[in-house]
């Protein structure tokens, strides 16, 4: 049986070198975006989803765990941040911390349930757990049900930086994205990441080598959920609302799709995938439900003919590590 991540190139010693260069190029491109006249809200939204997809990819790409419920972290962090900012009057930085911490706590609870099973069952369990959260948020009062939390104030970061200014907000979001990206990058290349990868390849062997693989998987799940929550909190400042859309299963599906398009188990694939899918949604916004159909077609064609994704295909063709 071919394991999902067989399409990923083995990490080579020069891999790190390639990835550093790619990181430099990515950062430089993102830094000059406000000067290019590209609509900053589009890029900010894409950055939030890119971080979200990177967090998701940590689980599937390196731990072999397909979460079909990552929207629950996005949505939970969004609701908590939104509520803290709007109702409790939290400052932006505290609002982000509150939302991220809530997602982290949720990841501890859901992770310890979900990692009890592997493979397809893990996917079904995470999907069911996020649906459970969806119904809870649908009925809870602080989420305002179908309406969601609207008009969330952006405020002044550290009392100084006016987040209502798109340029300032852009650089804050970018800094947060790069921070989250580097945390994941560091985790993948740490001893922790190595154990995680060996668990994906052969869990029994990792266990027999003395690793408590369940603990590693749980830790990866918590890290992934927390960073997904971090992305959700950031998104509150961009969208200024928190709604049920972000907890819905279709959102979880979009996260999977972004990562699949970009390349499962690649470092930069989720970022590329997020930009591609968000751009596609922008351009096709007028097509109504056909967007869903197109997403389905992309899903199916990626699985059938393009399992390496964009970054994986580039790596494969040109022998560079992305």
């Amino acid at each position: 049986m071919t394991v999902m991540t067989d399409y990923i190139l083995p990490v080579k010693s020069r891999g790190l070198h390639d990835e550093m260069i790619a990181f430099g190029i990515m950062t430089a491109l993102l830094l000059i975006v406000p000067l290019t006249g590209v609509y900053p809200y589009f890029v900010m939204q894409a950055l939030c989803f890119a971080l979200l997809a990177c967090a998701f990819n940590l689980l599937i790409g390196y731990g072999g765990l397909l979460s079909f419920g990552h929207a629950m972290f996005l949505g939970t962090a969004g609701y908590v941040s939104g509520h803290a900012l709007k109702v409790w009057g939290f400052s932006p930085e505290l609002g982000i911390v509150a939302g991220t911490a809530a997602a982290g706590a949720l990841a501890v609870v859901t992770g310890s349930v979900a990692i009890r099973r592997q493979g397809i069952y893990f996917a079904m369990i995470t999907l069911a757990l996020s649906q459970l959260l969806y119904f809870i948020y649908l009925q809870a009062t602080f989420t305002h049900g179908e309406d969601g939390i609207q008009g969330i104030p952006q405020g002044y970061m550290f009392g100084l930086l006016n987040l209502a200014n798109p340029t300032i907000l852009y650089y804050i979001v970018l800094a947060c994205f790069l921070f989250g990206f580097l945390v994941i990058f560091r985790a993948i290349n740490s001893p922790f990441g190595e154990v995680l990868k060996s668990t994906r390849e052969n869990e029994q062997r990792a266990i027999s080598l003395g690793y408590k693989t369940d603990q590693y998987k749980l830790l990866a799940f918590i890290l992934s959920g927390t960073l997904a929550g971090f992305a959700g909190s950031l998104k509150v400042f961009v969208a200024q609302n928190a709604s049920l859309t972000d907890v819905h299963w279709s959102m979880s599906g979009e996260i999977v799709l972004m990562t699949l398009v970009g390349g499962l188990g690649t470092v930069f694939g989720p970022v590329i995938g997020a930009f591609v899918i968000i751009a596609m949604q922008q351009y096709l916004a007028g097509f109504g439900q056909w967007v869903t159909v197109i997403q389905g077609v992309i899903f199916a064609s990626c699985v059938l003919t393009f399992r390496r994704g964009i970054a994986g295909e580039i790596s494969h063709r040109f022998g560079i590590s992305l």
Binding site: M4, V256, G296, V303
Partner: peptide, 13 residues
């Protein structure tokens, strides 16, 4: 997991 992803795509379509 690929089967799950493919059939999810089919469901969306």
């Amino acid at each position: 997991l690929y089967g799950m992803l493919l059939t999810f795509g089919i469901a969306l379509i």
